[in-house]
């Protein structure tokens, strides 16, 4: 039972990282300036690295004998987990699957997610599960940079030109409704807290809002939850496999080769 929870919890963390990596990688070769093309690709690479470590761990869990998740046959790999599950099995939050939009939207998505991921991994470092704790500790160095880089861009765009300020406001309009899900625990997250290895995401909300508002202040934006966004309905469901229509297309691209040539080695 605990193993099911651990598997689901690990897959959720892995899916978040992979889907955002896949989205960010769409910029490679198309960035607004060469240095930033390199930076966003770097973040994508970091996230793929995190996803791989987490999928490898999840594969280990599923390959060990356990009747309830149908494992024990030693068949799962990082690739089978990433490439052979469909939309309903993916457990990423809705935020990471949202389209890149313009640079402001990509930046704000990254800032919201990285700030969350930073707080999450800070706690997860202390997890009773040694593997998750080790992955969190290693990833935290990367995520610290992601937060810094995306914060700097939020400030630059917010306090740049009227156009960039307006585009950042539009991005906020697009993305704010997906931030609530980060702090609303899915079943396996609540169970993971009870089991002792998970992080209570609802407890991260205050620190997240504080950081967001601090950076928004520098960016000459109103507080995140103010300016007409009070009481906006928060979309949820991604973490439980009920996604936006975006994810199907992401997976169609991501999984194309494995689906078209089943069983081939690459």
């Amino acid at each position: 039972m605990t193993k099911d929870i651990l598997y689901n919890y690990t897959m959720h963390l892995a899916d978040n990282a992979l889907i955002l990596a896949q989205r960010n990688s769409e910029w490679c070769g198309h960035g607004p300036v060469l240095e930033q093309d390199i930076a966003i690709t770097n973040i994508s690479l970091d996230l793929i690295g995190q996803a791989r470590s987490l999928y490898q761990y999840a594969a280990e869990l599923i390959n060990a004998p356990s009747p309830s998740i149908g494992g024990g046959r030693g068949e799962a790999t990082e690739d089978s987990l990433a490439y052979l599950r469909d939309v309903r099995q993916y457990k990423n939050c809705l935020l990471v699957e949202q389209p890149n939009g313009d640079w402001a939207q990509t930046i704000l998505r990254q800032f919201f997610f990285s700030t969350y991921q930073y707080l999450l991994y800070q706690q997860l470092q202390k997890s009773t599960d040694d593997t998750l704790a080790a992955i969190a500790e290693k990833s935290l160095k990367e995520v610290t940079y992601h937060v810094r880089w995306s914060s700097e861009w939020v400030v630059r765009l917010g306090d740049g030109t009227p156009e960039s300020h307006g585009r950042l406001e539009n991005a906020l309009e697009e993305l704010w409704m997906y931030t609530g899900e980060l702090f609303a625990p899915a079943t396996y997250e609540a169970e993971a807290v009870t089991a002792g290895f998970g992080v209570e995401v609802s407890a991260l909300k205050a620190a997240w809002e504080q950081k967001v508002n601090e950076i928004f202040g520098e960016a000459t934006l109103p507080d995140a939850a103010a300016g007409g966004r009070e009481g906006i309905y928060m979309q949820t469901g991604g973490k439980e496999g009920v996604h936006s229509e975006q994810l199907g297309y992401i997976l169609a691209e991501l999984q194309y080769m494995q689906r078209a040539y089943p069983g081939a080695e690459w």
Partner: peptide
């Protein structure tokens, strides 16, 4: 990529 990035580069310069 260059044209759509123009506003981003302008914002960075202005900031």
């Amino acid at each position: 990529a260059w044209d759509e990035g123009a506003w981003v580069r302008e914002a960075a310069t202005a900031y």
